[in-house]
């Protein structure tokens, strides 16, 4: 019963609050229309209960500016489509409650990635390139398995640890927040390191540290990381990027030098 009272109390509090008017300065630019220089356009909307940026942006598009471009897919914080700079920081817009924002805000597309228009960027293209480069798939010991047979066993704790690293949604926040990547476009980025750590942990993957060294053992890889760790701080899935990258660095340093 205490839960009911608590929840009702919260609902009442929300309902009685005076709604705010929010200002969004949104970076507008359409690469297909290079004649119009990038500019900020200001939109004002009235805040509603449990309004997220997904709701706010759709309201702007439906009622104020139907040409505004942005990407949402799952609108539930699962798919990673809607990463953008909210007041300068990469965030998933769909799960950013406007109640957590000040009245004046700026929205901009994620830097680093190819701009499609306004808030929409082509993270998918970059991620596919990253996957191909780092071969982010399981390199099984045997190519064919007999699907009729009982599956290989795996320690339950290990499975959970692998899933912890497998939770990456490739939203691109970590790369957009990465000072190294911003300076050097061929940098693998935290998303790539996370995947390398994930496959390295997986006993079903036949690759050795020597193989991983081939992939990330240089300055575009783990030795290029300057440990600014904004990746860790902005990751919407709270992946343990700091410890994983440090771990990879130690492993790769030992593998490379033979120490």
């Amino acid at each position: 019963m205490s839960a009911i009272i608590e929840n009702n109390g919260a609902a009442d509090a929300v309902e009685s609050r005076q709604s705010r008017w929010l200002t969004f300065d949104i970076l507008r630019y359409d690469p297909a229309d290079p004649g119009v220089a990038p500019h900020l356009r200001t939109y004002r909307i009235e805040e509603a209960d449990s309004m997220t940026l997904f709701i706010a942006l759709n309201e702007i598009r439906e009622h104020q500016d139907p040409t505004l471009k942005f990407d949402f897919v799952c609108r539930a914080g699962i798919c990673g489509s809607c990463a953008m700079l909210v007041n300068g920081r990469p965030k998933l817009a769909c799960r950013t409650l406007t109640s957590s924002l000040p009245t004046e805000n700026t929205l901009a597309p994620l830097p680093f990635f190819e701009l499609i228009g306004d808030l929409s960027v082509n993270t998918g293209k970059w991620m596919r390139g990253m996957s191909e480069r780092l071969q982010t798939w399981l390199h099984a010991w045997e190519d064919e398995v007999d699907l009729r047979k009982i599956e290989e066993r795996m320690d339950p704790d290990l499975a959970e640890q692998i899933y912890e690293l497998d939770r990456c949604i490739e939203c691109g926040c970590c790369v957009a927040a990465c000072g190294t990547a911003r300076m050097r476009e061929d940098f693998v980025g935290a998303v790539g390191f996370g995947k390398m750590a994930r496959f390295r942990l997986d006993p079903r993957d036949a690759r050795t540290d020597d193989d991983y060294y081939e992939l990330i053992g240089d300055d575009t890889g783990v030795f290029g990381c300057m440990s600014l760790l904004a990746c860790h701080d902005v990751c919407p899935k709270s992946l343990p990027l700091q410890t994983q990258i440090a771990f990879l660095r130690r492993r790769m340093a030992m593998t490379g030098t033979g120490l």
């Binding site: 300068g88 920081r89 000072g179 440990s227 600014l228 904004a230 701080d233």
Partner: peptide, 16 residues
């Protein structure tokens, strides 16, 4: 890097 640090307001990045 300068634009990045300015927008991010992220201590570890600014420190760099």
């Amino acid at each position: 890097i300068l634009c990045h640090a300015k927008a991010m307001r992220h201590e570890d990045s600014t420190l760099w």
